[in-house]
Structures are given as structure tokens and as C-alpha cells.
């Protein structure tokens, strides 16, 4: 890994060279009183002074809806057109937060846990992540409790840490990052030896993952799930904004003799998600679905995929209409 300095005008020039290279650039934009990732052409469109985008960036590597393959029936024969990885354009994600970048690992772990997921992997391969370390946090953030930090490099190809002079410390983490640097190599100057941690928000850890894990391993039949989830209305908002939630639905879009098979977002918080055709539902009650949400992230994923299924971004807590605060619930389990 290499550390460099980039000035304010250097950032502008570099950004322009990325856009000019023809890659799609997505960045947080302030529109309709929400900060969301949108395709941008100019640095001036990019939002600043906010803690978090409402949605995570997972749609860039796991679109809300995507065609797996399409087909056409003709004279008793079926012509299949498979998903073409080459159809995915080169994409750069600008100003991603470390907790979002860290979401790529658990997401990819899920998509590849038995057989490799061609679609997801194609997106990941074509996507470069330029993250910005966090100088601000709010009461929902808890990355430091789940192996992350405001300056965590996991998932980033390059990380910028903004400096008071408008320039930034640039940590070039991966070959993909180097390729981005190569678009405008002269703007990257020698490292000025600045201490990055000075510019990061201070966020003490709120619980110990090991403790939580140990407690959760014995909590399957606990009454805590019902107590915590009574007010949950099962809306799924938490899963949709989460950078690591990967539940999906497979749907068919048929018109006469042609059709497409589509994968789209779903959520384990929905009663319908586990409903069998027989009418039996193994997760019949919201408390079971809430248990699934927490155990999957904090117990099953660490055990089976060797990665925590939560990056501490706090989005679910912010999005939940009835204040199901994940940090509060996890800490209360840890303290039990």
C-alpha cells in the first residue's frame, strides 16, 4: 500500500479524469432532502456535510432488480440468452464510507458461499471503490464495535482522508486503486507524513463482538426475541437499506413466448419470505424473523462464512419507523 498527498485542485482534476475515462461515477448527491448515490458528472454535484446516505451502495454490486437470463420459445425450441458479464460497465463509487465498503466482503461471502455468483462477481470486478474516511458520526454508528473503524480500509481501493486545506491523504490499497491513480498520476504528490487518525471521528466501541457471539450462541430459545420485536411491524426497511442484507426473490417476467428471469431484493423480515407452498411457515412470527435477522448477522455468518454480517453503519436504526435500534438491542443482549 502506498500513501500520497493530493491537493484540493488535484482532487478536482483527478475526479474529472475519472469521469472523462468513460467510467460511470456514482457519488452521494443531495436531492429531495435525502443523500443518495447517483450517477454524477461533476464534483460540484457531490454532497458534503452529512453523516450517512439513506441507502447503502450495495445496489452497485447487487442491483435492486436484475435479469439472470432471458428466453424465447420458437417452434418448440427454447433459445436462452444468459447474463453477459461484459454488459456491466466500469463503475467508480466515489465517497463511499468505510462501513459501506466493508459491506462488500460479507455480501460477496453470501453470494459465493456454495457456488460462485456470476452476476455479483461481475459487478464487483467492474467496480472500484474510492472511500472517504469519516470525520463525523451520529448516535446510530457503531463500526468500531464490529471490527471496523472510521478509517477502515477493508473493501476500499483507495481511501481519502480530507485535510483542513481541502486536500487529502490518499491511501492506495489495491491494484484497482493504482489503475485509478494512473488516470491522473501527476496530482498524487509525496506523502506529507500527516497522521490520519487526527482527522477521524472518535467512536468508542459499544460492545464486544466475542461476548455478543457467546451470548447469541445460547440465545435461540430466549424470550428476548419476542420482547424486542413486539413493536416491529415487519416492514423490511432495515434489510433494504442494509449494506450486507442479501435476501432475494426470483421472479419470472413472461410475455407470450418470451420471458426473463429476474432476481430482486427481498427481506427475511417478511412473513412471506419463508412461507411454503403447503401453507406451513417455519418463521411464522415476527419474533422468529427478528431472531433470524440478528443471529444471521452476528452468529451464523461469523461461524460459517468467517465474517460478521454487520458493518455498524446504523442505517437500519435510522430507517426503522418504530425505532428498533440495533445497537440498543445488541448491547442489551451483551449485557444480559
Amino acid at each position: 500500500m502506498e500513501t500520497k498527498y493530493i491537493s484540493k485542485s488535484g482532487i478536482e482534476q483527478w475526479f474529472k479524469s475519472i469521469v472523462d475515462s468513460g467510467k460511470r461515477v456514482y457519488a452521494p448527491v443531495n436531492s429531495r432532502d435525502q443523500i443518495e448515490f447517483k450517477r454524477v458528472k461533476n464534483l460540484s454535484e457531490v454532497a458534503d456535510e452529512y453523516v450517512q446516505t439513506t441507502q447503502s451502495i450495495k445496489a452497485s454490486v447487487y442491483p435492486k432488480a436484475e435479469v439472470l437470463f432471458s428466453y424465447e420459445k420458437e417452434h418448440g425450441k427454447v433459445h436462452l440468452t444468459d447474463f453477459n458479464p461484459d454488459s456491466i460497465p466500469e463503475t467508480v463509487l466515489w465517497k463511499v464510507h468505510p462501513c459501506d465498503a466493508a459491506g462488500f466482503k460479507p455480501l460477496s461471502a453470501i453470494f459465493n458461499w456454495d457456488s460462485p455468483d456470476k452476476l455479483h462477481n461481475a459487478h464487483v470486478q467492474k467496480t472500484s471503490v474510492i472511500s472517504f474516511s469519516c470525520a463525523m458520526a451520529d448516535e446510530s454508528c457503531f463500526c468500531t464495535s464490529v471490527n471496523g473503524s472510521p478509517g477502515n480500509l477493508a473493501g476500499s481501493d483507495i481511501q481519502l482522508t480530507m485535510l483542513p486545506d481541502g486536500g487529502a491523504i490518499a491511501e492506495i490499497v489495491t491494484p484497482k486503486g493504482e489503475a485509478l491513480v494512473a488516470l491522473s498520476p501527476t496530482v498524487f504528490e509525496a506523502d506529507k507524513g500527516e497522521d490520519k487518525t487526527k482527522y477521524l471521528v472518535d467512536l468508542p466501541a459499544r460492545f464486544s463482538l466475542e461476548e455478543v457471539n457467546a451470548k447469541l450462541n445460547k440465545a435461540f430459545n430466549s424470550t428476548v426475541w419476542k420482547e424486542q420485536s413486539e413493536r416491529c411491524i415487519g416492514c423490511g426497511a432495515c434489510a433494504f437499506v442494509c449494506p450486507t442484507c442479501a435476501c432475494f426473490d426470483i421472479q419470472e417476467d413472461v410475455h407470450g413466448s418470451t420471458g426473463r428471469r429476474i432476481r430482486c431484493w427481498d427481506a427475511c423480515g417478511f412473513g412471506l419470505f419463508t412461507l411454503h407452498t403447503s401453507g406451513h411457515n417455519p418463521r411464522e412470527h415476527q419474533s422468529q424473523r427478528w431472531r433470524q435477522r440478528l443471529l444471521h448477522k452476528f452468529s451464523y455468518m461469523p461461524a460459517r462464512l468467517n465474517v460478521v454480517g454487520c458493518t455498524g453503519c446504523g442505517r437500519c436504526s435510522r430507517a426503522c419507523p418504530v425505532d428498533m435500534n440495533i445497537l440498543e438491542h445488541i448491547t442489551s443482549i451483551a449485557e444480559q
Binding site: 411491524i233 434489510a239 412471506l272
Partner: peptide
Amino acid sequence: CYACRSACPLCYCTKCVVEVNRPQWINPW
């Protein structure tokens, strides 16, 4: 995400129209 539906006191249907899938009446994606 259908949070709008979940939060609505009058959306109490045990099977919502979006879950009608023979045929799929409203595209779920």
C-alpha cells in the same frame, strides 16, 4: 420494501394484492 403498507393500520389483509402471483399482478421488483 412495503414499509408504507406495513405501517398502515388499514393494510391488514392477510394476503396483499402484491402477493397475488397467479399470475403476478403487480411486478414485485
